[in-house]
């Protein structure tokens, strides 16, 4: 279990770097487009397509597992005080189970969609260039699947906090 949690840590951290690349690439691409058309009267190709078909998907889904592992997901904290320390730990385990369920089903459904898009070789045409769009679909099952894994790894740490701190 420890190696598994170390691997997930590495992988989620690594993927968040790709998210950063997504943010910066999007910024540069949009800026280049604006400057290009206002200053030089030239248009940078495929801005809209790249933003909607790649950058946005990259920067939301690739860091998702990392966000989940750091527990940055938004939740309603108002009632946490009601449950007590032990209650909260039990609830956290249940919540992790729910999250695994939802993430897994999302991963499977979007995987099938991605395969379908891959099979037809989905593409769009912007200006004269043909842009393939199917790779963008794979960010979804990838992001959701890894998030499920992160929640799975969390359960033993919640059940046996002792051994977890020793391991760390």
């Amino acid at each position: 279990m420890n190696t598994l949690s170390r691997i997930t840590d590495r992988l989620t951290g690594f993927l968040s770097y790709f998210g950063m690349i997504g943010v910066l690439a999007m910024m540069v691409h949009i800026c280049a487009d604006i400057i290009g058309r206002t200053v030089f009267d030239i248009s940078v190709p495929a801005t809209l397509e790249m933003v909607t078909r790649y950058y946005m998907l990259m920067l939301v889904l690739l860091p998702l597992a990392w966000v989940e592992s750091k527990r940055f997901m938004i939740m309603v904290e108002a009632f946490s005080g009601l449950f007590g320390k032990l209650g909260l730990r039990i609830i956290d385990v249940l919540v992790a189970v729910v999250c695994i369920g939802v993430y897994s089903i999302l991963a499977i459904s979007t995987w099938e969609k991605a395969i379908e898009q891959y099979d037809v070789g989905a593409y769009i045409v912007a200006l004269d260039t043909q842009i393939i769009v199917w790779p963008g679909y794979f960010t979804l099952p990838f992001g959701f699947g890894l998030a499920a894994l992160v929640c799975l790894v969390r359960i033993p740490l919640l059940l046996f906090p002792q051994s977890a701190s020793e391991a760390a």
């Binding site: 933003v51 998907l57 969609k113």
Partner: peptide, 19 residues
């Protein structure tokens, strides 16, 4: 489940959020 995440995220206006 298969279509909504992609449809929601692949919107041009949403790109303003991270920027």
């Amino acid at each position: 489940l298969a279509s909504k995440p992609y449809d929601f995220l692949s919107k041009w206006t949403l790109s303003a959020v991270p920027m």
